[in-house]
């Protein structure tokens, strides 16, 4: 149920633009339901997932 994809931002510019990537790393979940810039501790990631996966 969970897929994690490392996306090289400069190779996939269109996708980076779509999600307004301005700093890396940026974690985008489910087509922009959540966008988190910077490192994400596991507890924060879990909180974000709980927020968007209702």
């Amino acid at each position: 149920m969970v897929q994690a994809e490392m996306v090289e931002a400069t190779e996939f510019q269109a996708l980076s633009n779509k999600y307004n990537v301005s700093g890396v790393p940026q974690t985008t979940i489910n087509d922009g339901a959540a966008n988190i810039v910077g490192a994400v501790p596991e507890s924060n990631m879990l909180a974000e997932l709980k927020r968007i996966m209702k």
């Binding site: 969970v2 596991e42 997932l49």
Partner: peptide, 25 residues
């Protein structure tokens, strides 16, 4: 290596999750 909390939550997922981490080399 995830915590039990995270594992429990993920086990209960009904919809797929796609996490994309944008990086530069």
């Amino acid at each position: 290596g995830l915590s039990q909390d995270t594992r429990d939550f993920l086990k209960g997922l009904k919809e797929p999750v796609l996490m994309q981490v944008f990086v530069t080399p």
